[in-house]
Write a protein that binds this DNA or RNA. Structure first.
Lengths: 356, 356
DNA sequence: GCTGGCACTCGGGATAAATGACTGCCAGCA
DNA sequence: TGCTGGCAGTCATTTATCCCGAGTGCCAGC
């Protein structure tokens, strides 16, 4: 369940906005609650602590700030972060060095799986957060070709190439015996007949074929259908669906000094379904997506935020890249980072498609 | 650098052995240092605490026990654990339930990668330690067949099947254009000519071929060689070399309540080279291998132990399975667990080979 | 060779006190 | 009306202190 908080820009006057902005920035930098004194001393306001206290009290009433305990300063609420991101944040541009690192890493790899693994690692190390890359199964997309390779007497490897260049292989065990020649022919047949269709469509066509009379007398076609259906079934590269890298990076963060919270977080990262749900729900959305704390089940429990972006072409979204970290993260740096990486990946993919 | 501690069984008399044994067992169970009083009360000895103190002092002098601080009980040293494992331990047999779980998990999967992933997870959950599976690259082994599939105009997927059933695929980008027919022929040629050789041998033969005169005039053969060499180069499925699962399980263990130690451990697990070194060094060894604390660089830093076993056939060792955990682990349970799993895996692999 | 006893050492937990960083509120001032 | 200084009150955190218990080493006696 993903539900962004509703925020209205006109809720706050100019001064309150500035104060909220400063508090969020300072709290992100220090991790500590921010008090009126610090705020007054920072020099951005020509106001006494007492006046700032009044503003802060208002911001608390409106739900943008909260106090961890009576005699502490204020920290932003989810709502506060959301307002900050929506209206107050000024993104830092990426340094040329960072841009190069991303371009390099995206350019230098050819195989799809590899790109994602590397991307995730890069993201993690550049952001010092958890890097996440999500790749939907081939099921959603149309295929370009299908080939069959004899691996052992009754084991055949199917190589399926998606319209977006994704390559999946899968080993099928079969009772029928196939020669290399037959496999070659079957591959050619399926590729010419069915390329451009999704796996699901192919399966249905194959099944419909079985009902036709002429098939009963064509042994070769029967074999083709049997193998084809086998190959198309259960293509779910589960182990590659979600790549999570750099989980160790969150260990340094002060919000995880508590061992219990840490453990919960790691366990949550291990079962990836919820995360996949969230990322999948963003697959239709254009542009950068940011999810804060209570805005989803997953992020709520652990006080996490997710910054993610779709990659792939407009017509064929391939998946999501992003980072996960504590709510208190440098959004101003993370946002352009994820955005740029997503664009770079998409560009690379587009280029590859044009080559063909 | 792996160097097991040297231990002599006759160093200790019967009573000292019994005391050491009891201390190791109790400490593994409780995690606390064991004092003379507890030992006396446990009923296994008809001795007063004072007498046990004498025995314990001797064991400390000989390096089998140590005191965390002056007024604490004793805990085993690496040497103490080593002696325990070598001479004192009585392995628990696996329950039929456990055996079934292992057999099931090994039986039900067909693809190689998948087995390893599952095995690692199973190991982790059954042992409540970190499960580790190591798969050496195909480089070490001879190949059974090699096939080429056209993925895109200048992209070819090579499917290499190892003599031990391992399947690796790799995408090669090439400037030359190949038709499907050509690829089919090339695959058949390489498979018949070179099966039974290692990748390295194949590479050398291919290079030697280029020097022969007749090749200069045979365009097809030239293409074959070019593609073959490309395919054989850099076959290093890095991302699959070492599978580590269940790192979260160590979070519960009291020895990792310290956040600093935890972080170090996770970082160590992330860079896998050292671990690979260790597991590789065991690849020649028969039977179960146990490595304790100071016996290797990796285990020393984190006070870890590794329990591992080779899998694969005798003539063709495939890799290692094992667990990693704090030195204080239930060796009596872990040893048979890892041993059985290794055997089951090997059996499964042998069966598959016989089928052909 | 075993045992009980005694002095000594430490780590850890509990308590108390001191510290300091806040806030809220109020009265006074432009 | 809005800003400010001041003051009392709150509460987490830190520091110091003490005490207790667990365990050892050593010794004299059986």
């Amino acid at each position: 369940m993903v539900q962004k908080l509703e925020i209205h820009g006109e809720d706050l006057d100019a001064r309150a906005r500035e104060v909220l902005r400063e508090i969020v920035i300072q709290h992100i930098a220090s991790g500590e609650p921010i008090g009126s004194r610090i705020l007054s001393k920072c020099g951005r306001f020509q106001l006494s602590p007492a006046s700032l206290r009044n503003v802060m009290a208002d911001l608390e009433d409106l739900g943008y700030l909260q106090q961890p305990h009576t005699s502490a300063g204020r920290i932003p609420t989810d709502r506060g972060y959301r307002f900050f991101i929506e209206y107050l944040m000024k993104s830092h541009a990426l340094s040329s060095h960072e841009r190069e690192a991303i371009d390099d890493s995206v350019r230098h790899v050819s195989e799809f799986d590899e790109v994602l693994q590397l991307t995730s690692k890069l993201l993690s190390s550049m952001s010092d957060q958890i890097g996440v890359v999500f790749m939907p199964t081939l099921l959603q997309f149309s295929i370009r070709s299908m080939d069959f390779v004899l691996v052992a007497e009754n084991k055949i490897m199917c190589v399926i190439v998606g319209a977006n260049g994704m390559v999946v292989n899968k080993i099928v065990e079969t009772r029928l015996a196939f020669t290399r020649d037959e496999l070659e022919k079957i591959g050619r047949y399926i590729t010419t007949e069915f390329s451009g269709l999704t796996l699901d469509q192919i399966r249905r066509r194959l099944i419909r074929l079985t009902e036709q009379e002429r098939v009963q007398h064509d042994e070769m076609l029967q074999k083709t259908i049997t193998l084809g259906i086998e190959a198309v079934n259960d293509v779910t590269p589960v182990q590659h669906e979600l790549i999570v890298e750099g989980a160790a990076s969150i260990l340094t963060k002060p919000e995880f000094s508590d061992a219990g919270a840490l453990r919960k977080t790691f366990l949550a990262l291990q079962e990836k379904e919820k995360l996949i749900d969230i990322l999948e729900s963003f697959l239709d959305e254009d542009g950068l997506q940011i999810l804060i704390g209570s805005e989803s089940d997953f992020t709520q429990v652990h006080n996490f935020s997710i910054v993610a972006r779709r990659y792939g072409t407009h017509s064929a979204p391939l998946g999501m890249v992003g980072i996960i970290g504590p709510m208190r993260m440098e959004y101003a740096r993370m946002a352009p980072l994820v955005d740029y990486l997503g664009r770079a990946l998409s560009l690379k993919i587009e280029e590859e498609q044009e080559e063909r």
